[in-house]
């Protein structure tokens, strides 16, 4: 494992690696502030059979490693005609809500879903931690970008459950499943909210309020993979609902929602009863001040307002 400030006693900016360097001092390398170089070093290690995991301290800093990801790590296997594999795992904390401002709060995953050969996998509070990480670290032949929403570091871990609040919880697809929450009362829904990682919490809060306050049965699909998209799971989740809304924390244009909407249109246009809507952050930068940040980022209210605005709902 490589990254900045990941050694004990500090244990990483978000303490994710705490304890690891004490237990495996030879295998945890703290690096200079050199994202490009340590990402490239991990690439070299992976080319020679190692299974490196790197931590980008704040996901925003991943731009400094973009060339290594787009022109090296993801290209080696294909441009060397399958002669090598480069299964680097890159962990990147994304997302706002903590007042860190324009360069420490972004959700930049949309810039990575179009890179051929890269898995983009957002972890949520419903995913089994062991099987999620061990799959990408030990079993995958392709490189993976794991998106961890920063808010999750301070939240209660839920794990694999069959019920959560007013929802049934089902795991759909694999190898990394997506999580489908449907209202316990009806077992089906009129509206499907699609999200991932920390966006799932926004969607769940919105879905609960839509049922309790407005009697709109709403399901939530929390994706286990953004690239490749689990199209079969997506199609199943939107079957028989009248509205689909994609909820993401990143900016709107060319975002995750745009890709999901296009993919669903190609895959199952006949099942869509209305245009897919997107809830995203604003068009600009993420402010530091708590009230300004809250207005800029999507929240349950923006999802609820969107659903209520839709024709044929409520």
């Amino acid at each position: 494992m490589l990254g900045e400030d990941i050694l004990d006693p500090y244990g990483g900016a978000f303490k994710v690696t705490k304890g690891m360097s004490s237990r495996w001092p030879e295998r945890v390398l703290t690096t200079p502030i050199s994202e490009a170089a340590f990402t490239g070093i991990a690439a070299g290690m992976a080319l020679r059979g190692a299974r490196p995991v790197i931590e980008i301290m704040f996901g925003d800093f991943i731009t400094l490693a973009f060339d290594q990801i787009a022109n090296h790590i993801t290209k080696f296997s294909m441009m060397y005609n399958g002669g090598v594999e480069c299964p680097v795992v890159i962990r990147a904390p994304m997302g706002g809500g903590r007042g860190y401002g324009p360069t420490h709060s972004q959700s930049l995953e949309k810039h990575f879903i179009g890179i051929p050969g890269l898995n983009v996998a957002p972890i949520s509070r419903f995913h089994d931690l062991d099987s999620f990480y061990s799959h990408f670290i030990l079993k995958e032949s392709r490189p993976t970008l794991i998106i961890e929403n920063k808010k999750m570091y301070g939240q209660e871990y839920i794990g694999t459950v069959t019920e959560h609040r007013i929802f049934n919880v089902d795991l759909k697809g694999g190898p990394i499943p997506s999580v489908l929450l449907t209202p316990v009362s009806t077992g089906k829904a009129d509206v499907c909210l699609i999200s991932y990682s920390g966006g799932g919490d926004i969607a769940i809060d919105a879905a609960e309020e839509l049922l309790m306050e407005h009697e709109i049965h709403t399901s939530v699909l929390i994706l286990g993979s953004l690239s490749p998209l689990p199209l079969t799971v997506l199609e199943e989740a939107i079957t028989d609902v009248s509205q689909v809304v994609v909820v993401e924390e990143g900016s709107r244009v060319s975002g995750i929602g745009a890709e999901i909407a296009a993919a669903l249109m190609e895959q199952c246009f006949h099942k869509l009863r209305a245009p897919i809507q997107r809830i995203t952050s604003g068009d600009g930068i993420i402010p530091c001040a708590a009230d300004k940040e809250a207005r800029f980022l999507p929240g349950p209210k923006s999802v609820i307002d969107q659903v209520l605005r839709m024709p044929g709902v409520s």
């Binding site: 170089a37 490239g40 070093i41 070299g44 992976a46 020679r48 490196p52």
Partner: peptide, 9 residues
Amino acid sequence: PAALGMVLA
């Protein structure tokens, strides 16, 4: 950097 990583591995 890949050259560094390879020889480290």
